[in-house]
Amino acid sequence: MTDSDFEKQILQYKKKLYRFALSILKQKEDAQDAVQEVVLRMWKKRELLNSDENFESYCMNSIKNYALDLLRKKRNFQNYKEFTSTGNIAPEEFENKDLIERMQLFLKQLPVQQRMTIELKDFQGYEYEEVSAILEISVNAARVNVSRGRKRLYEKFKEEISNG
């Protein structure tokens, strides 16, 4: 892939890459840094990249790999095997928030695998097959993770409604 092909192609995915990185890392600065770092790494091997292959999927997959690595390094996970556990959000974070903002917070609270699949499927509109390719999991696993995430959000929503 030539330099100009690379620049043209990567620019059109800027928003998607940033949003996906943000959904994993939660912090804007980290997401921005991750996108720039992944672009650099891909640029280093641009000659090996085929422009006709699924470049978008490859970029998103690279973001996933880098962001998860970063999370591990930052030890955001107390224990790598506790990927599916959820942290609690401090009650003050909910103060003065409307229902939509509260739902956004609940979304951030989901385990990373559920956050990633929901981000890709519901927020970015990818099909399950595409989610499967980006995350390198089976289509079934992608669907299961979306389902688990939605169910958890539904439960939280019901709690919010019943608490008024």
Binding site: Q36, V39, W43
Partner: peptide, 11 residues
């Protein structure tokens, strides 16, 4: 809106 950052800063 996403922040207005340079995608190629590190590059």
């Amino acid at each position: 809106e996403i922040p207005n950052f340079n995608l190629f800063e590190k590059t």
